[in-house]
Amino acid sequence: MDVLSDMLSAIRTGQPYAGRTKCQAPWGVLFPDGDAAACHVVLQGSCWLIPRDGAPLALGVGDVVFTPHGDAHAIVDQPGSPTIDYQPKRGDESFIREMTIPGAGATTQMLCASYSFDQARPHPLLHGLPSVVHLPARVGHHPALRAAVDLMGNELRQSRAGTEAILPALIDMLLLYVLRAWLDDQSGPAMTGWATALNDPAITIGLHRIHRHPERPWTVEDLAGEAGLSRAAFAKRFAAVVGHPPLTYLTWWRMTTAARLLRESDATLSTVAERCGYGSEFAFAKAFKREFGTAPGRYRRHRRPG
């Protein structure tokens, strides 16, 4: 089980979307606050990202930006241009969204993707990301990310048989490659947080054990033994790089797993309790209500899609 992939599948909600925008200057598009993270890739021309806080960011062909926290931001041909709200054309069931802004000036084309995350329970990895992740285009850097962009662009450029099946996987692939690229850029002596955690063999082993078997009655000693460290050394290193002590993260992961099962499966409450390490449905319901402020059954009724 891959920790990064598993983490994303747990906190993702709803359907991802992707689309192409074609804008001719002067233009500007405002993306409002919400629970959706956005990824923008410049395919042609140039533009600026105007964050809610901070200085405008110039973008050129091949640049990738990711706004993981759903913060409001604008994409414009140049600072000061008027903006319109993001209102793409789409079918109710389609993964593909399109937006065109006609004008007399230079053309900019972008590839955009949207991901809904559970903002009530952000994973520590996402919580540690900056409000804007910028991956500038550089020859030879992040070739896998560039390949994912090319594949996704081809599907959006000309929808063909199988596009509706291929595109969701490509949208997920793009997000994973963006996060990988950012984590790779953090490597080195100065890296901190989850960039360290996913490159630290001992901590990675501990995370894998928690993610693979949340039902087990793990102790810090057990996890430290799996990682080949003393209890004290493991607990100190885990808390420093993950941001939570081992058993606090274990509880967080159990509750996150339980919420996903309630949203996405028909498993009984007793089955969910067992898979998340609780000896009884009552103990599970009590822990879940303490964490989410509502009973598991009520959560399921209100959070199930459709």
Score class of each variant (00 low, 15 high):
9 S>K: 12
9 S>A: 14
12 R>I: 10
19 G>M: 08
21 T>C: 10
29 V>G: 03
30 L>W: 09
31 F>T: 07
34 G>H: 02
38 A>R: 11
42 V>W: 02
52 R>H: 13
55 A>K: 14
59 L>W: 01
62 G>W: 03
70 G>A: 01
82 P>A: 07
85 D>F: 05
90 R>Y: 11
91 G>K: 12
91 G>S: 13
92 D>Q: 12
95 F>I: 11
98 E>T: 15
104 A>V: 15
108 T>H: 06
111 L>Q: 06
116 S>Q: 14
119 Q>W: 09
119 Q>S: 11
121 R>T: 14
121 R>D: 14
123 H>V: 00
123 H>Q: 02
125 L>A: 09
128 G>N: 13
140 G>L: 03
141 H>Q: 13
146 R>N: 08
147 A>V: 09
148 A>M: 07
154 N>Y: 11
159 S>V: 15
171 I>N: 00
172 D>I: 06
181 A>F: 02
181 A>G: 00
199 N>P: 00
207 L>Q: 00
210 I>M: 04
213 H>I: 06
214 P>R: 01
216 R>D: 05
227 A>W: 01
245 P>Y: 06
250 L>N: 04
253 W>P: 03
272 V>W: 00
284 F>V: 04
284 F>D: 01
285 A>W: 01
292 F>P: 02
297 G>Y: 05
302 H>Q: 14
305 P>Q: 03
306 G>T: 08
